[in-house]
Nucleic acid binder design. Sequence first.
DNA 1: ACAAAAGTGTTTAGATTACACCCATGA
DNA 2: TCATGGGTGTAATCTAAACACTTTTGT
Lengths: 227, 227
Amino acid sequence: MTELYKGHPKHLLAVDCVIFGYKDEELKLLLYPRSFEPVKGKWSLMGGFVQENESCEEAAARVLYETTGLENIFLEQVSAFSHPEREPQVRVVSVVYYSLIRIQDQDHELVSAHGAKWWPLTRLPELIFDHSNMVRKALGRLQQKAGYSLAGIELLPERFTLLQLRKLYEAIYQREFDAGNFRKKILSLELLHKTSEKNYTESRKGAFYYTVEPGLTEVETERIVKF
Amino acid sequence: MTELYKGHPKHLLAVDCVIFGYKDEELKLLLYPRSFEPVKGKWSLMGGFVQENESCEEAAARVLYETTGLENIFLEQVSAFSHPEREPQVRVVSVVYYSLIRIQDQDHELVSAHGAKWWPLTRLPELIFDHSNMVRKALGRLQQKAGYSLAGIELLPERFTLLQLRKLYEAIYQREFDAGNFRKKILSLELLHKTSEKNYTESRKGAFYYTVEPGLTEVETERIVKF
DNA sequence: ACAAAAGTGTTTAGATTACACCCATGA
DNA sequence: TCATGGGTGTAATCTAAACACTTTTGT
């Protein structure tokens, strides 16, 4: 039966990772400069080729690990990009993932060893090939995801204040939210756990730290939220 | 520079099509029986291999054309499936699309030449490999899409009554909608054009036929609808 | 005292939902 | 005349959104 598979072309298969981070009340993207022609010097998503024995998701996790040193990262497939001429000279089909990482957790040396740099999402440099498209689509997915889950929290430290969470959502959706309404909506989901400690660095009064309600599975953090 | 691409494995790349139809107030799926081992006799999605000179989307459109005779079909990517052992014996990475077709428009001879059969979505036979997963994910995407667009209309004839549209939505979401409320919500979108003709086959009184408001692009048919 | 964030409460507008009700008509 | 879907109207409920107001505390 395997001869039915013969005669069909084989393709180079890559993954590209849209790596989101969050710092200074801004969404950031981890990019690295392409070091060879064509389009040498232009900025690029982190990518790599899918090996024989790994799935695309595993390849993306590997790329993430190799470039940031991080494991067990939130990772979600965006789409396959497969236009025959999406890269010049060589045909590569690329499966795009986006991931959410805590910038403060990254392996600095490893990241800088790749010449990588965190760019503010709103002021990106020119990207190679169809990578801008990939980013746009990934952001759309992130916005969608954040609308019915607390996945965005993967960008924040383990504990965070509601101000920090609101600023994160403002960065994700590129718009402002009313502080009082945001607080009530988020708390009404009953997915957050109020700790007994306060953060005093951002206000005189001090804001309680929250964590994700312990014991919640990913599915359980999903509620319809209309942001 | 192309030697940078050397040494990386190449993969068989396939597309699988989740082909939705609608008939007798039910969502249907077009499946065909696998005619060779392994898992001979089990039912399968329509699939095909991606050629050198085509994108995955083009390959999916080609598969659709080859099996149903239809062109210019609504087609949307679901996801890439790439687990190394998702098919026994041979590693194939598959990009899944779902499509919405009007069953009455299909080329009957062509479809039956493949031994294909329309199955009610709620009573599917056992499917090969990970195809059940693909179907589940595709249905999720269709439900999502139908929630903010009128894409589902691709499953109905050019003109349709509001009863037919409601029954379609009930089939997509597997739940009932209040007739009056559904009517008001749909019409409030101002995306439908009321024709002057009536359908008398489903009610004594006769229900006006509607069409999609002419001149609307796909984007313009998108509104937030909470179904 | 003031500013700035924390946190609570209120009011309004709009959407959702359930459901009543009349219309038209073939059997 | 009855059943059935077509089509409209309304009242109760829920949610989103705007915004007022009080608390806390370092400067």
